[in-house]
Design a protein around this nucleic acid. Structure first.
Length: 469
RNA sequence: GGCGGGGUAGCCAAGUGGUAAGGCUGCGGUCUGCAAAACCGCUAUUCGCGGGUUCGAUUCCCGCCCCCGCCUCCA
């Protein structure tokens, strides 16, 4: 089956081939965080989806160049900096740091570039793009000194979101500068400075001001990836207006198709409602870590449902993630024991099936891919129970795991036995030798309380960590 | 009102025009000093509701109901 994805633009599953298919290069642009507060786990669901996309394409032999922007100037960052009485740069830096810290916890691979909207280089690019749009009649400066995109001059405006502009109406959530704009749907390319902006301003041919939100992505994407890019990702809430505006700006300037494949991630819900900052119903990564869960458990919980399906975040879901990972951990431990000293031999290989990667080829069908993994786990566990799995086959499965784990990144970091745990375990082993089961059961309870589990097997006592990294 | 996504067992969730993957939970069994893990078995005659097409539909078509999202802050 060919690689295929659901393209938001056509609303269809489409076979995907990159522009540079010969060299197997793919350019991906992903909308990153606005650093006005700590990102929540709903935001990270989108970044994990993008991570899965990148890793699967890499597993398929593509060379990925991924860019993720950092929006470090907009209404909210300016307001936040004002309220905190610190310079904008200082205000946003703390949330940039937090973003990278959280992303690392979730094992999200770093993008190749993290351009920031306030970088002088991109400000200049934005200004030159806006100038080009004005020259083409696609933008105008209004009486309020701001520059707006003239959507009536761009016939494709609305194609991505499938909106009929005559139907476009305000929800009244945002104040409109209706007196100044030609059309209610015209969006700001350059926002003229006003007092509330304080010292946040850049010079431009239209006077001091700052970029509109949408133009930064058009500028940074084309600056780093060229006029055309293969895949552009984001959350569904970015479809309109943000990505619609990006198309208008970029194609308005270049005259070329901006993006070949638009992929959008559905929202993370909590209590059946969208998780969002404005509703206040959100959790951050530290919030979930504080409940005793680990980054990889959060990763599992957020990755396990197809990106186009809304996913309801629950603590039961976190529990399920923990138990499922535990099943994988135990399976790997058993395989390693069977593999013995042959483990790590990459030359051993057998026919193992390709359902995992084929499922991911189909619009990242992670549920089917994980289904195959768990079927494999049951089959090989059964074989090991019956002593029918030889060391060579165990090694082959471990090698297979190494491959799919490059995509999943689920493997436990392993944990050193703390001295206290090791002592309790040793005491328990002695008690069992002496058949002092009362004492050994007490020690087992103590180990459990510390998050470790004692299992008695025919090869003696085994200590495993039940939860965590 | 317009535009999307979705309604599959207690929960989460794949899936196909031919009779329902997988995970979690629960119950019974094998194993065990007892457990745990693992394995075996049981847990949807049925896929929101009503029609239609078909030899046959959860899967295609029509209508309806419900949930969530977007309609210029949003991943």
């Amino acid at each position: 089956m060919p690689l295929r994805f659901f393209n938001t633009y056509s609303r269809k599953l489409e076979d995907f081939t990159p522009r540079d298919a010969k060299n197997r290069k793919i350019d991906i642009y992903t909308c990153g965080p606005t650093v006005y507060s700590r990102a929540h786990i709903g935001n990270f669901r989108a970044y994990i989806f993008e991570d899965l996309l990148q890793r699967h394409l890499e597993a398929r032999g593509f060379k990925i160049h991924r860019v993720m922007n950092i929006t470090d100037v907009d209404d909210k960052t300016i307001r936040g900096a004002r309220e905190a009485k610190v310079p904008l740069q200082k205000f946003t830096q703390q949330f940039k740091d937090a973003f990278f810290e959280d992303a690392e916890k979730l094992r999200i691979k770093r993008a190749d570039d993290y351009p920031a909207a306030t970088d002088q280089r991109y400000i200049e690019k934005m200004i030159s793009m806006i100038s080009a749009l004005i020259a083409k009649g696609l933008a105008y400066q209004a009486d309020d000194k701001s520059v707006y995109f003239r959507i009536n001059k761009f016939p494709n405006y609305g194609k991505l979101a499938h909106f009929d502009l005559t139907e476009l109406r305000s929800t009244g959530r945002v104040k409109h500068d209706e007196y100044d704009k030609e059309h209610i749907g015209d969006f700001a390319l350059w926002k003229a400075w006003d007092e509330e902006d304080g010292d946040v301003k850049w010079d431009s041919p239209w006077g001091p001001g700052r970029p509109g939100w949408h133009i930064e992505c058009s500028a940074m994407a084309t600056a780093l990836l060229g006029d055309q890019i293969d895949i552009h990702c984001g959350g569904v809430d970015n479809i309109f207006p943000h990505h619609e505006a990006e198309i208008a700006q970029s194609e308005g300037v270049t005259g070329k198709q901006f993006v070949r494949m638009w992929l959008h991630c559905a929202h993370l819900l909590v209590d059946g409602q969208k998780m969002s900052k404005s509703l206040g119903n959100f959790y951050t990564i530290p919030d979930v870590l504080a409940k005793g869960y680990t980054g990889r458990e959060i990763r599992y919980a957020l990755i396990r449902v197809n990106y186009r399906t809304q996913l309801n975040f629950t603590w039961d879901g976190m529990k399920e993630a923990r138990e499922s990972l535990g099943r994988i951990d135990d399976w790997l431990q058993r395989l390693r024991e069977v593999a013995g000293d042959k483990k790590g031999n990459p030359k051993i290989d057998i026919q193992l099936g390709h359902e995992f990667e084929e499922a991911l080829d189909d619009d990242l069908n992670i549920s089917a891919a994980l289904g195959f993994l768990f079927e494999t786990i049951r089959d090989t566990n059964r074989a090991m129970d019956q002593n029918k799995l030889d060391a060579k086959t165990a090694v082959a499965w471990l090698n297979w795991w190494d491959q799919i784990n490059k995509v999943l990144d689920f493997e436990s970091d392993g944990a050193e036995l703390p001295e206290e745990v090791a002592k309790l375990a040793e005491a328990r082993a002695q008690a069992r030798l002496a058949k002092d089961f009362r004492k050994s059961d007490e020690l087992r309870d103590k180990l459990n309380a510390l998050g470790w589990e004692a299992r008695d097997t025919k090869d003696g006592q085994k200590i495993t960590r039940r939860a965590g990294a």
